[in-house]
């Protein structure tokens, strides 16, 4: 099976989406100081995973579905969701994509194929398999992208679902973003494979499906590996497990300090818990977003000036999103009673 490499236009599109995700997350972060108190609860950022998200979803076609976790800001941006509606949701406003009922952890955009996000680790994995069963019955070659973290692979839901997905040859691509940390513990502390020095993709062998580890900081590498898994799923040959190795560049989530302010992102757990500042700084030096930009500029696909223009365009887009969200009214109180039942 050979896959076509992404064209120059497609690579520029990938960079654009990576920049949009990064800028969106930077604006979420900045909100804690620019507009203290407007974000409630817990938010989880995708910075560091942009290349993985964009590379994987570069194979998404209309009719496909994607499901993810509470760390869910990146996917809908790549799928075409309006960042204004996303930011308004994160601020709990009437113009939010989920009418202010879900917030940061439950962004959903069915119209663009982003079907759902569970805030419970691993719980969404069987949902993706269920959507894949629907795709299998419809026989249109549609597939489901299932995103989760390495921590989720310690849940029963992961193992039960991979077993059934393989038995039933469901058209689902399990993309495990392995960012090395499960909230504040390292993978080696809670994963038998990791502790033995094995890649987590090895878990696929128990379920008789391909298991591939890929550098999740390289969108082209991810696109190639996921491309094979997608082709396999579309052909009715069943699921695959992709372990996409990324480094989460922010802490697990923002600090929650009831009764309120200030809420902010502390330093990464590598520093705050393990004192491994050098590990974190090495990850920063390998930041996938400037690296991919540099690669496109160096290879002549994009001029430096065009890349700068792209940065400016994305910054303006997300600035509009923040201003829109801040200006959006709170939902009418009675709306809290809607949408309980269909």
């Amino acid at each position: 099976m050979s896959l076509q490499s992404p064209s120059s236009e497609q690579q520029i599109e990938m960079l654009t989406q990576m920049l949009r995700i990064r800028e969106f997350e930077e604006r979420v972060k900045r909100t804690f100081t620019e507009y203290p108190g407007v974000i409630r609860g817990h938010t989880h950022l995708a910075d560091g995973a942009e290349a993985s998200i964009v590379g994987a979803l570069s194979h998404f076609k209309k009719g496909d579905a994607a499901l993810a976790t509470y760390r869910c800001h990146g996917y809908p941006l790549a799928l075409g969701t309006d960042p204004k509606a996303m930011m308004a949701e994160i601020l709990g406003r009437a113009d939010g994509i989920c009418k202010g009922l879900g917030g940061s952890m439950h962004l959903t955009d069915v119209a663009n194929g982003f079907l759902g996000t569970s805030g419970i680790v691993g719980a969404g994995i069987p949902h993706a398999a269920g959507a894949a069963w629907a795709a299998q019955i419809r026989k249109k070659g549609e597939v489901v992208f299932c995103f989760f973290g390495d921590g989720a692979s310690k849940q029963g839901a992961f193992h039960e679902t991979l077993n059934i997905a393989s038995l039933w040859k469901l058209p689902v691509i399990f993309v495990m973003e392995n960012n090395g940390y499960n909230v504040v513990t390292t993978s080696e502390q809670e994963d038998a494979n990791a502790a033995a020095g094995q890649p987590l993709a090895i878990k696929a062998t128990s379920y008789v499906m391909p298991g591939v580890t890929v550098d999740g900081t390289d969108p082209l590498a991810v696109a190639e590996v996921v491309g094979h898994a997608v082709a396999r799923a579309r052909a009715g040959e069943g699921p695959s497990l992709i372990e996409s190795k990324v480094y989460r560049l922010s802490a697990h989530g923002n600090i929650i300090a009831p009764p309120g302010v200030p809420l902010h992102y502390p330093e990464h757990e590598a520093i705050t818990v393990f004192g491994k500042r050098e590990e974190y700084e090495a990850a920063l030096r390998g930041d996938p977003v400037p690296r991919f930009r540099g690669k496109l500029v160096q290879s002549g696909i994009l001029s430096g000036a065009a890349a700068d223009a792209l940065n400016a365009q994305v910054a303006a887009e997300m600035d509009v999103a923040v201003k829109f969200a801040v200006a959006s009214p709170f939902p009418a109180l009675e709306s809290a009673l809607d949408n309980v039942y269909a």
Binding site: G116, A123, I125, H127, W133, A134, G156, A157, E160, T161
Partner: peptide
């Protein structure tokens, strides 16, 4: 439309949820 499942209640019910969200 009719399938036997392993003894995996979390996956069984979770799969039902996903299938339902996808229109079944």
């Amino acid at each position: 439309r009719v399938r036997v499942t392993p003894i995996s209640e979390t996956a069984e019910i979770g799969i039902a949820i996903g299938a339902a969200m996808a229109g079944l």
